[in-house]
Design a protein around this nucleic acid. Sequence first.
DNA 1: GCCGTTTTCGGCCCGACTGTTTTCAGTCG
Length: 576
Amino acid sequence: MLNYDLAQIFYEIADFLDIEGVAWKPQAYRKAARTIENLQEDVEEIYNEKGIKGLLEIEGIGQALAEKIEEYIHTGELKDYSKLKKSLPKGISELLEIGGLGPKKVAVLYQKLKIKNIKELEFAIKKNKVAEMPGFGQKTQENILAGIQLHKHGTERMLLGEALPIARQLVSELKKLKEAQQIEIAGSLRRKKETIGDIDILISSKNPVKVMDKFTSLSYVKRILAKGPTKSSVYLSSDIQVDLRVIDPKVFGAALQYFTGSKEHNIKLRGIAQNNGYKLSEYGLFNKKTGKLVAGKTEEEIYKKLGRQYIEPELRENYNEIELAKDKKLPKLVELKDIKGDFHMHTIASDGANTAEEMALAAKKFGYEYIAITDHTKYDRIANGLNEKEMLEHAKRIRDLNKKIKGIKIFAGAEVAILADGSLDFPEDVLKKLDIVVASLHSGFKQDKDAATKRVLKALDNKYVDIFGHPTGRIIHQREPIKFNMPEVLKLCKERKVLLEINSSPSRLDLKDTDIKQAIDIGCKFVIDTDSHAASHFYGLEYGVATARRGWATPDHIVNTKPLNQLHRYFRKLKL
DNA sequence: GCCGTTTTCGGCCCGACTGTTTTCAGTCG
């Protein structure tokens, strides 16, 4: 995929042009970068199929940028980009990553103080040089220094599964205020992105000052970045930024819509508002001519006025949802309450924390109708994987649990390792004695694309494999997804009726949203599993469901929304 | 640099907060 590299280059060009003080072009480059980054197809394929014309069809790509993409496809280089890189020093774009520093200030620092990177900036601050610059001052200098510290601390985004509990705790604290009316989480957290940059919370209240005072004095607030009557920003002791906005109850829906984003979704929606004689902002939808408020109390009425059905937050990424909403063609997304079971979990037999019985009882309490217990196999020694004999004995004990525990069906399965050559860790005569087989990659993540594709295709061609577990093997912030040919593997899954797992573990979320969308287009089916290693992990199911929703999945795409008596349609060996 | 039911030229999302300056530019989301 050239998309990622090209997008990064366009972003960097935008930064360079910004520092040079060039107007408007940076926005155009950034817009193009965002579009390319989010594109489903590879720009190189588009170019190979339709040439420059195909590139021009992409939103935000005109003649000049299309030619640049063409140049990059042919030569792997961009002359204009190289030129810019030569004229400005290398570290300069990292200066823009520091909070409080934008292109104008960076330009001043570079031109007047010859500052080219963070190190030189720190040195200049120590000598008090920065405060003396025009437009700067003592306070600005301090803020830049604090920004440098934060930048060093790591700008890594927080996992959805880490941020959501923190946000919910804040919400419950703020709910105690009698001045607070409605209160909602907004931003990427409401859209349930896999990682979150900061937490956005909206409150409607007629007494903003009181709300802000309470918020900024919460015990886990470490530093106040800004405090005003409508907006305050703080850093928590857990090093995450929280923005709180106080909204007039009359336009709470408009604010919620605006602050939920995404940016791309909102830009598109504003354009539609403009074309229809409206102006849309966080303060409501206004008639452009009369200036009169026409909608704002709820999100629903805003979308309705703009001729759209309501769009779920998880879909608001400008992936065609605004167009489909016009014809009321958006899918009815799967919900947490639709999920009736779980096909992937571990016990103390391998690397889990609870016994099979404890897991089954907890699963029943959680509301599941059925589960499969799927411990590791012998190749995964580090996870205390079971050999064939141990697994079959384990399976018998699991099946026997059904006599003891009523009100939940317990299947005996295994999470079988896919070996480097694509063979499975257990022979077929053992696999066929298990109710459910999850096949997963736990090694060889550095294989090249061809080898990995062959390996996965061979493994999934085994007629006893029911589920492809956490397919890409990625661990967010830690391990890249394994590089196999995704469309080819998805096609095989469809043909062989292998179910794709959407793994709910917050650091996996694998398949991820965009892969799920692609798999749906190809015609695949899924299961949403928790991969629980302890009874408490069932509560992570909501992250898997959120990811499925971001991938446009409906209940019909997800096999574990089906009742127990229909499961035999999706699993070959299941005896009910 | 992009784009067009206001436009092939002249716009480009828009409002809050901060700090420096003293009426506003820069930054952020």
